[in-house]
Design a protein around this nucleic acid. Structure first.
Length: 605
RNA sequence: GGGGCGGUAGUUCAACUGGUUAGAGCACCGGCCUGUCACGCCGGAAGUUGCGGGUUCGACUCCCGUCCGCCCCGCCA
């Protein structure tokens, strides 16, 4: 950090009051007097005349200082440096034709300054306040104030504001009440790792920050509010990603007396309206619906980017009886075999195939990357070709529609792993080979998720334990748990999960049955979910809802692939906020009050 | 928990296979300049090569450890 510029004499704002934002000044105001305030974006001192580009949140405006017109203002202008804060009173002048700057919205005019107040000095910025500036993100986050002055971030946060406003007006117009729920709440056994807040008054007890307002909004339904929403901050202490922050914002909503279709209709209308109002984007309607099973089958993902014109092919049954041990043994032990066919793939060289294999092995943990290339003469090449029987080749060729120029990628692995790897290959190759269908926006609903998934032998909630099963599947709860479909639904846009929701269990018997299948004994159930079960027994209406990841919506509308670009003060991947440097240590006395003692591992200082 | 990429001046980058005093653009500071808008010209300052250790006559470069950033797997109901 540089030292402050102490030698600069500063002016008070005095009687000057801003009359216009920078870009509100235009040709219509020529010869009128204006007062503008903002930052020195750049200055060009010609010895005589001085030009200053003034920047405020609306944009840039050129100020002119002439020694012969206003000598005092001109003299002061000689002291300016970048990012100084100033107030300027002057007269709007048209520029000579040859002096018009077409790159600026205000390029046809300029302000001939008569009075200049230097409201504050500024140390030189660590990097240029320009959109084009490519600066290391660590530097940007440490100097977030300067970063936030860049137009892209100003625009992103303005866009975010419009999303808030549109959500509020749309939902309020649909009869939703905005209700806040507590941030200091109770830890729940399910779900992500909680952020804990130690209690001063109850030694050894902790509040938890909400992972979502899930249970509270259900209680609001039971209390009879009928339609609720909240723009809610949520906290999950898990490892971060480009599209995941420790704290993030949900548009959380819940409604009573509805079926799945009612919620989906509302979600479609809300999503379309917010994208139109806040981002000027017309989403194509109606949103197609895709079952979870089909999504996994065709795309290997439950949030596919359906614009990519590549689809997976399942070949598991082909290798149930096969002499190709590598694939056969995977199928025998419960895994799957799938293929990603890429036609007209001559652009992918042998060297690139090797790099792809290295990539999926090292970064995605794949066992390998089997591939088959169909030559111009129709001959099959590749390391696994020799292990395939005549009929297997024929079947593969038929199902993948292989033709000269095709490249077939195979994964034989667990359902999850094989799909994760092929889904990633699909999107990477789709981008690299330009296999998009050209649509800008591809929204869809994913429906018919399973209620349970088996993990390490045990049944777990696919999403969370309060999701209601489809009515017709309730008889299967005990007998064929894994076949039970959930009322759960996701909204997916361009390969991003925008949010998810479901109908909830409003009958305590069903809720108890599900908890029991999840392995909760009766007393555990009462201890951990007693308040919910009691609530259900006190007259719970059928209800369901949804939660959008608001940050992701803004991210997509802003055209970035990084959540940190749409959050004013985001955290790094390791959870630090570099401007204020949180988290930070606290004084011993603070810990004592909270009845806490820090235990350091060996080697920590 | 694991994998990949990266860290050299304020900033963006360079510095061969280990070899003189670690360079350049922009920014910054000073001077000059009355129509620039990537202003121009002249001059200047600016570095613990993330940190610690090792190998070597010699380390930005090689080795080990560690910290930080980004991306991904796991994780995130």
């Amino acid at each position: 950090m540089s030292a402050p510029r102490e030698s600069v004499r500063l002016d008070g704002q005095g009687a000057l009051r801003r009359s216009h934002l920078a870009t509100e000044v235009g040709p219509a105001l020529v010869d009128g007097e204006v007062v503008v305030m903002g930052w020195v974006h750049s200055h060009r001192d010609h010895g005589g005349v001085i030009f200053v580009d003034l920047r405020d949140r609306s944009g840039l405006l050129q100020l002119v200082f002439r020694p012969d017109v206003a000598s005092r203002a001109h003299a002061r202008a000689e002291e300016l440096h970048r990012e100084f804060v100033l107030a300027a009173r002057g007269v709007v002048r048209p520029r000579a034709t040859e002096d018009i700057n077409p790159k600026l919205p205000t390029g046809e005019i300029e302000i001939e300054v008569h009075e200049l107040c230097i409201l504050n000095s500024a140390v030189p910025p660590p990097f240029a306040i320009e959109n084009e500036t490519e600066v290391d993100e660590q530097v940007r986050l440490r100097h977030r104030l300067h970063d936030l002055r860049r137009p892209v971030l100003q625009n992103a946060l303005a866009l975010r504001h419009r999303v808030y406003q549109s959500v509020r007006s749309t939902l309020a117009g649909q009869g939703f009440l905005e209700i806040e729920t507590p941030m200091l709440t109770k830890a729940t056994p399910e779900g992500a790792r909680d952020f804990l807040v130690p209690s001063r008054q109850y030694p050894g007890a902790f509040y938890a920050l909400p992972q979502s307002p899930q249970l509270l909004k259900q209680l609001l339904m039971i209390a009879g509010f009928d339609r609720y929403f909240q723009i809610a901050r949520c906290f999950r202490d898990e490892d971060q990603r480009a599209d995941r922050q420790l704290e993030f914002t949900q548009v959380d909503l819940e409604m009573s007396f509805v079926a799945v279709d009612d919620v989906l209709q509302l979600l479609e209308a809300l999503t379309a309206r917010v994208f139109a109002e806040a981002g000027g984007v017309a989403l194509p309607r109606p949103f197609p619906r895709l079952s979870y099973a089909d999504a996994m089958l065709r795309y290997g993902s439950d949030c596919p980017d359906t614009r990519i014109e590549l689809e997976l092919v399942d070949l598991t049954d082909l290798f149930r009886e096969s002499d190709f041990r590598a694939f056969h043994s995977v199928v025998e032990s419960g895994g799957i075999v799938k293929c990603l066919p890429v036609h007209d793939a001559d652009a992918l060289s042998r060297g690139e195939l090797d790099r792809l294999e290295l990539f999926v092995r090292k970064e995605l943990g794949a066992r390998g990357l089997a591939w088959i290339r169909v030559g111009a003469d129709g001959a099959w090449q590749g390391p696994i070709v020799k292990f395939l029987s005549e009929s297997e080749r024929a079947q593969i060729a038929r199902r993948t529609a292989a033709q000269p120029g095709s490249l077939l990628f195979f994964q034989a692995d667990s359902f999850e792993h094989a799909n994760t790897i092929l889904a990633r290959l699909r999107s990477d190759l789709g981008a690299r080979l330009g296999r998009s269908d050209g649509r800008a926006w591809a929204p869809l609903f994913i429906v018919d998720f399973p209620l349970f998934v088996r993990e390490e032998g045990r049944l777990q909630s696919a999403h969370m334990p309060f999701v209601a099963p489809l009515d017709e599947d309730i008889p299967l709860l005990e007998s064929a748990s894994e076949k039970v479909r959930a009322t759960h639904y996701d909204v997916v846009l361009n390969g991003n999960e925008l949010g998810s929701g479901s109908l909830r269990n409003h009958r305590s018997a069903v809720q108890r049955a599900i908890l029991s299948i999840l392995g909760y004994a009766k007393d555990q159930m009462e201890q951990q979910f007693g308040f919910l079960l009691n609530a259900l027994d006190s007259g719970a209406p059928p209800h369901g809802g949804f939660a959008y990841g608001l940050d992701r919506i803004v991210m997509l509308l802003a055209g970035t692939d990084n959540l940190r670009d749409v959050i004013a003060f985001p955290k790094t991947q390791r959870g630090q906020e570099l401007l204020m440097e949180s988290p930070g240590e606290v004084a011993r006395a603070q810990l004592d009050e909270l009845h806490l003692r820090v235990v350091r591992e060996r080697g920590e200082s």
